[in-house]
Design a protein around this nucleic acid. Structure first.
Lengths: 347, 347
DNA sequence: CTTGATATTTGGAACGATCTAAATTACTCG
DNA sequence: CGAGTAATTTAGATCGTTCCAAATATCAAG
């Protein structure tokens, strides 16, 4: 019933050459004569040959697959990151193997194991919350190049690419202070993550530098999502002494904060200054357009992929920790000049 | 330098059995004695053995990989769809191979080819815009089970899982008519897609049914994104006879429409009724919460995966076209009663 | 203890590509 | 024409697993 698979031997027979020659053609070797190459390619087309990567991998022990593991694909920051990785990886002739862990360590363990079994030649990981250096130890020991993105893990001994969360948060808060705000909150995010830690330190640093206090009640954690933002701002508005501005853990939280403000009939930008973090695609087109610390997720994915490819090609490379710069993108949500509004929105 | 790979033979030697027995243990065969199994498993752990799926696939010619191809990963609808697929596929012991085509046919061709080379045992595809039955012909001819999601392709001869776009659009527009709207626009989406077509027919059908005209000027296409929504509503508000409500192609467009309305100092829900399509996660928490036709992307991914698995297990199954029902979720953006607002938002 | 089941284990041939080293062919030049 | 070199082609081993058929161990019953 089912016709047998077409193999190199079949094409070899059809083209009147040996399977070795066919293999050479498949690999685009310059050794083979033009006429022969054409004959082989014709046979490949005619017989509907499909290359069998499993067989090839078995012999070569290196697989043109690179894996990317993200902790939350429904967060567009990570979706964009994955798209960035894909672009680079793809043009380097690799294919991407994407898995979502949903922040679950156990699931992360499984997907990493599965990727190793498939012989990925490198791995880009945005670790699930609570991942420890030990969790990555077997992977690292195996010598597979690994690049951690977004969240670094101390002592893991692999390369990492993070954004300058501290400086970004500092710049954002400085901006708010310059605009006259004195009571500034830090909203959203899980307090037990390194990213939260760094952004919060930046926030505190900028306040201290300006001689302002940063009472603990103004730092309100929540899920790093839109829903989390809503609850965080609600809690902030319960305070007897309300803040007039907030730096949010990320853009999703910032959107939630805007939602929550509107629910209380406050207009973000005009009545309360909001700054996000990440600069996801929607930040630009939202109304009011979101002032945010641009991390450029797609670009970050690209850089992570390049870093990984470099390591794959170099064999055993030194691990490096790259902190990529961020910049504050001032739009409307922090109360920027109103005349800019129409211009930005109309794009 | 690099230590040699540990293989079944190594474990066999370490455990004092033959490689066949090790293979049996690996597959969880009931044939092997408990004591032996324990000994083998211990050796596996001790030597840090990593299963080589390429080798296994080569022999078995079936790969426990299922592929999922989406046309736009940065659209959270598709990200959620992928998450739904992943959940099911994962618990069935398969791994997911996700690729993003970014709506490019050429890229789609490449990723599908790559997946075939990796020997996927089934494929879930949300085809790029403009995909034709012919593009899928070689894939279909190969006998690999394929399930099309979201966008069906006439004559492709494979199973498909789409949502009842026509009925959903009709229900939404009926709702707007009941609330007294007479001039209702259809905003966003690429007019050359089947999904657009179906939703638009539903929109027109509901208007006709109520004896209302549906002038072409009220149907305004755009990119199916937030930015597209902004431009679409801007265009709609240029009309001499402005609409008072709109059914949007999808939720992203609906959010953009809300943005655009606010830019003109109109409050969505109060001054203009907006209904979306899809019910992405943020629809519920946005302010105003978005009234939308719920397609349940994650659930759809799950069902698509189940359909595919059924086909993989059944061998050559009849292809079926499933249209899953949708339901209108009334929230605030269409001008629902204000007292419901706090309740929904507080979740 | 045989004997016939039943339970467990095993050797060796696949699977479909790549790689090595060697063979063949073609070409250049005196 | 024949040597020497360059350009092509090739046979056969090999990668790490699974499968088959057959071997061996174990056990209950006579």
């Amino acid at each position: 019933m089912a016709k047998k698979r077409v193999t190199v031997v079949d094409i070899a027979r059809a083209a009147g050459v040996s399977k070795s020659t066919v293999s050479l053609v498949l690999q685009g070797s310059p050794l083979v004569n033009e006429a022969t190459r054409a004959r082989v390619n014709a046979a490949i087309r005619d017989l509907g040959y499909v290359y069998n990567r499993s067989a090839a991998n078995l012999r070569q022990a290196k697989s043109k697959i690179i894996g990317i593991v993200v902790n939350d694909l429904t967060n567009s920051f990570f979706a964009e990151l994955a798209v960035g990785v894909d672009a680079v990886v793809q043009s380097a002739g690799f294919v991407q193997f994407l898995a979502n862990t949903g922040e679950k360590i156990e699931r992360q363990r499984e997907v990493i194991a599965s990727m190793r079994e498939h012989g990925v030649s490198g791995l880009i990981i945005s670790p699930a919350r609570g991942t420890e250096a030990g969790d990555l130890a077997p992977l690292v020991a195996s010598g597979i190049p690994v690049v951690l993105v977004v969240r670094d893990i101390a002592g893991a001994g692999v390369s990492s690419l993070t954004s300058d969360n501290h400086a970004g948060a500092m710049a954002a808060v400085r901006h708010l202070i310059e605009r006259g705000h004195r009571r500034i909150a830090f909203l959203g995010g899980f307090p037990d993550t390194a990213v939260f830690e760094a952004r919060m330190r930046g926030y505190r640093g900028a306040l201290r530098e300006a001689g302002l206090a940063s009472p603990d009640e103004l730092v309100i954690g929540s899920a790093p999502s839109r829903a989390g933002g809503v609850t965080a701002i609600e809690q902030a508005m319960m305070l007897k002494e309300r803040p007039t501005a907030a730096l949010c853990f990320n853009d999703a939280v910032a959107f939630g904060v805007c939602d929550g403000l509107r629910a209380r009939r406050l207009e973000p930008g005009a009545d309360f200054a909001v700054i996000g973090f990440d600069d996801v695609i929607e930040a630009k087109t939202a109304v009011p357009a979101l002032t945010t610390v641009s991390v450029d997720p797609q670009g970050m994915g690209e850089r992570a992929a390049e870093l990984l490819l470099k390591q794959i090609n170099a064999g055993r490379a030194e691990s490096e920790a790259i902190v990529s710069p961020v910049r504050l993108v001032v739009r409307q949500s922090c109360g920027a000049a109103v005349e800019r509004r129409t211009r930005e929105v109309s794009r």
